[in-house]
């Protein structure tokens, strides 16, 4: 059975990197006595995959991992058991059952919501929200993106689905996942070039709110939270 677990990351836990979070969850499964399935072979490992790595220092209200379980109880019970073995700063939000043929979260991720604000004392003096929104409203925002193999020019604008001012900072819904991963930092780098102001490397405080699959057809987007693709289950 395929399950999707949603969790949040806050406090000092934001300093724990992706690989260590994977190790953390592997151990948590055992502590919570989740009947997780193992791969075959001499060194079996748990069948578990994460939707999208979260950078060190980034907060999140919506992280996902998918697991394969041999047996299940109920959403509520499994959520409770997992929460009992979590540390401060990681909370399990939900455990949902997926269809047997469901694609895993990693391959589905198409967009992410973020709230971006400035760390205390790090906001550039010349920053103006008006100017930033103006920048975002251009027809195209060309940047060169460094990948492992080469650099390529992309138009950020085609992956910026929504940007607006929010009470906690700037809200943005932008491309995410293996194909079009745009991090908020990339947008701010382009903004720095656009305005000529410079920000220190710790200036941004980023919080991811949720991850989405895109169920739209060709040119239209229909973003659905990864959580909504699963269902609650009962004993």
């Amino acid at each position: 059975m395929k399950l999707r677990i949603k969790f949040t990351k806050s406090g000092v836990m934001v300093f724990i990197g992706h690989l260590d979070m994977m190790r953390y969850f592997q151990k948590a499964m055992r502590r919570a006595d989740i009947d997780i399935a193992y791969s075959q072979g001499f060194n079996p490992h748990q069948i578990m995959s994460f939707a999208l790595p979260l950078g060190v220092g980034v907060y999140s209200d919506g992280e996902y991992l998918d697991i394969e379980a041999n047996s299940i109880t109920s959403s509520e019970d499994m959520c409770k058991r997992l929460n009992e073995v979590m540390v401060d700063g990681v909370t399990i939000e939900s455990v949902k059952l997926l269809a047997d043929n469901a694609k895993n979260a990693m391959s589905l991720v198409a967009a992410a919501d973020y709230i971006v604000s400035f760390r205390e004392g790090h906001a550039p003096e010349s920053f103006s929200m008006k100017k930033f929104l103006e920048f975002c409203e251009q027809d195209s925002i060309l940047v060169t993106k460094q990948t492992k193999k080469n650099t390529r020019e992309i138009d950020l604008k085609s992956y910026m689905y929504e940007v607006r001012e929010d009470k906690d900072g700037i809200y943005m819904k932008i491309g995410a996942g293996s194909a079009n991963n745009i991090k908020p930092d990339l947008i701010f780098q382009a903004y720095e070039e656009y305005t000529g102001i410079s920000m220190d490397e710790f200036a941004l405080k980023v919080k991811r709110l949720d991850l989405y699959a895109d169920l739209g057809e060709e040119d239209t987007h229909k973003f659905v939270s990864l959580e909504a693709l699963g269902e609650d289950f009962y004993e």
Binding site: G11, V12, M13, F15, I16, G17, D20, Y24, K27, A28, R31, V56, G57, V85, V87, D88, G89, R119, F202
Partner: peptide, 26 residues
């Protein structure tokens, strides 16, 4: 909120910040 002896900025600058934050299981 847990107390944090080192600022976010320091923790982001150094290697393996998990060495210094505590909060581990058990």
């Amino acid at each position: 909120m847990r107390k944090q002896a080192l600022s976010d900025e320091i923790l982001l600058k150094i290697e393996k910040p998990a060495r210094y934050i505590g909060n581990e299981v058990n």
